[in-house]
Each structure stands twice: as structure tokens, then as C-alpha cells.
Nucleic acid binder design. Structure first.
Length: 199
DNA sequence: GGGCCGATTAGG
DNA sequence: CTAATCGGCCCG
């Protein structure tokens, strides 16, 4: 377990796979609602056929023109906003998709937005957590480390075990074990692949 | 302009 | 299992 994990600009100046793993346990919040990140996925800008950069010129332009740590927010299936961090470590750029949170603050607001009561159902999916936190397209391109209303805090030095699995919901490049989640957490999105292993 | 696709979700 | 719903992309 690494000590003294800091969460500043330099955190995101690394490989998206490393960032995805180390974001587990960190706190993400917006406008009074927040939670602990318990599930992430990494997407590599180069060579990863599941990454937007593979088929979207606009995503490649985003990677080239924004600083590491910038929010990459997009609408999926015409309905759900999905939230990512841009990361870039030398030649290895990419995104970290935030897939699940364990809700901490603003529970009642999240319950109202989600039309759900159980705290396990508020943020256990990438489209659910953006709805719960109120993240929408206008947040695309902002910097959560400095933007008003945003919260991004490092995790405690001691933290639970992290498991890995292949990524969820993609049709291409299914083979990479780039999903990370807090082992045994009830706040992780379903399904949990049986291929999960310790990271 | 038209057609296709998709890092999802809720409901039957 | 499927419908919902639309931005990005490619084609023409």
C-alpha cells in the first residue's frame, strides 16, 4: 500500500491504468453530493479499440488540447452522461471512466434525482453516478481540481483490497483487465465478472 | 440529410 | 430480454 498518495495535477500525469487503480478510494463530488470512488476503468488513447480516440477525431483533439485531470464528459446511448478524467503520462495518454461511488454526502439530493432510496442504488454505475451528482454535458472540459463546486480528495493511506477484471459493456478490446474495483464492495456496478482477480 | 453505433439503464 | 434516445461520425 503506497503511502502519502497526493491528488493534484501530477496525479493525472501518468498512465491511465495506474490512475484508474489509484483513484479507487478517492472522493469525488460536485455541488454538495459526493462519494468514494469504488470502481473505475482505464481506456488507452493509443492502441485501445474501445477508447473513443480510436474512432472519434474529436476525442483525439480533446486529448491533444487539454491538460491531464480535465473532465471528459459525454452522452452515451442518447441518455446517460459518463464522466472520465483525462490522463497523460509521457506517451501514454487515456481516460479513466468513473463507474461507481459509495455515497457519502448529499444522499437525499441523490435519492431525489435518482428516484431510488437504497444507497447502493444511487451511484453503482457510470450513468447513475452522474445523474446522482448532477453532472451533465456542460462539465465537459472543466478541471475538477480547481472548478467551483467540485471535490476531489485523496484516499486514506490504509484502504481495502483492489480487484481487477475485464471492462464492462464494450464490444471491442474486451481482453484488457482494466477495470478496477474495491474488493467486496456493495456499491460496485453489476454484473461482477467471475474473472475478477486481485490487482 | 440519412444511417449506424454505442464505456447504459429500467422495467417486464 | 428490449426500448429508450441522440451526439459523433461517415457517406454521398
Amino acid at each position: 500500500m503506497e503511502a502519502g498518495l497526493k491528488l493534484d495535477k501530477t496525479f493525472f500525469q501518468r498512465d491511465p491504468i495506474i490512475c484508474a487503480k489509484e483513484l479507487i478510494g478517492c472522493t469525488l463530488g460536485f455541488a454538495g453530493c459526493d462519494g468514494i470512488i469504488v470502481e473505475t476503468e482505464a481506456y488507452a488513447a493509443a492502441g485501445d479499440r474501445a477508447c473513443h480516440t480510436w474512432s472519434r477525431p474529436s476525442a483525439r483533439e480533446f486529448v491533444a488540447k487539454h491538460q491531464p485531470g480535465t473532465a471528459y464528459v459525454y452522452l452515451n446511448y442518447g441518455m446517460h452522461w459518463l464522466f472520465n478524467f483525462l490522463t497523460r503520462g509521457g506517451e501514454n495518454a487515456g481516460f479513466v471512466l468513473i463507474r461507481s461511488l459509495m455515497p457519502l454526502n448529499g444522499i437525499e439530493i441523490m435519492q431525489r434525482r435518482r428516484k431510488r432510496q437504497k444507497s447502493e442504488d444511487l451511484c453503482n454505475g457510470p450513468g447513475k453516478l452522474t445523474q446522482a451528482l448532477g453532472i451533465i454535458g456542460e462539465h465537459h472540459g472543466i478541471d475538477p481540481l480547481s472548478a467551483i463546486g467540485w471535490k476531489l480528495c485523496p484516499r486514506k493511506t490504509e484502504f481495502g483490497e483492489i480487484s481487477t477484471s475485464t471492462r464492462i459493456g464494450i464490444s471491442r478490446a474486451r481482453e484488457y483487465p482494466w477495470r478496477f474495483f474495491l474488493t467486496g464492495s456493495a456499491y460496485v456496478s453489476l454484473p461482477r465478472p467471475q474473472t475478477a482477480n486481485h490487482a
